[in-house]
Simulated scan of single mutants.
Amino acid sequence: FQAACQALGARQKFTRPHCPWTNGKVERFNRTMQTEWAYRKVFTSNAQRARALAPWLDFYNTGRRHTALDGQPPISRLSPRS
């Protein structure tokens, strides 16, 4: 993970321990993931549910409109590398 962050020029940030209110973005993502993926349909096995995760994450990041981004998906916030 550290090597990937370094290669991307990304910096890892941590929230303060025992302060969930400082972690609103992740808490909101977890809520969305529960309602739109985990509990949207009945999965008959953990393997079936695990297979459904990657396509949902791809949709969430590249196709799903986000109100906080003026109706754009998160991928729209990334700049192509020069």
Rank of each mutant, 00 (worst) to 15 (best):
Q2A: 03
A3G: 06
A3F: 14
A4K: 09
A4Q: 05
A4I: 11
A4C: 06
C5Q: 02
Q6M: 10
Q6A: 04
L8C: 13
L8S: 12
L8T: 07
G9A: 11
G9K: 09
A10F: 14
A10C: 14
A10D: 01
A10G: 05
R11Q: 12
R11M: 06
Q12K: 09
Q12I: 14
F14I: 08
T15N: 04
T15W: 06
T15M: 00
T15A: 08
T15I: 14
R16A: 10
R16N: 00
P17T: 14
P17Y: 11
H18N: 08
C19P: 00
C19H: 12
P20I: 08
P20T: 08
P20C: 03
W21K: 04
T22I: 00
N23H: 01
G24V: 05
V26S: 10
V26C: 12
E27Q: 05
E27W: 03
R28Q: 02
R28S: 10
R28L: 01
F29R: 02
F29K: 06
F29S: 07
F29G: 01
N30F: 10
N30G: 11
N30A: 12
R31M: 05
R31D: 04
R31P: 03
R31F: 04
T32D: 05
M33N: 12
Q34E: 10
Q34P: 10
E36F: 01
W37F: 14
Y39V: 05
Y39T: 04
Y39S: 06
R40Y: 07
K41P: 00
K41M: 11
V42L: 15
V42N: 09
F43G: 04
F43H: 06
T44E: 04
T44R: 12
N46Q: 14
A47Y: 00
R49W: 07
R49D: 07
R49E: 11
R49I: 06
R49F: 12
R49Q: 13
A50W: 00
A50E: 13
R51I: 01
R51A: 14
A54H: 08
A54P: 07
A54T: 13
P55D: 05
P55R: 09
W56Q: 10
W56F: 15
W56C: 10
L57M: 13
D58W: 11
D58R: 12
F59Y: 15
F59I: 15
Y60A: 09
N61P: 07
N61G: 10
G63F: 05
R65G: 03
H66C: 01
T67G: 08
T67S: 14
L69C: 14
D70N: 09
D70Y: 09
D70W: 01
G71S: 07
Q72M: 15
P73W: 02
P73Q: 05
P73M: 04
P74E: 14
S76F: 07
S76C: 07
S76I: 04
R77F: 03
P80D: 11
P80F: 02
P80G: 02
P80H: 09
R81S: 09
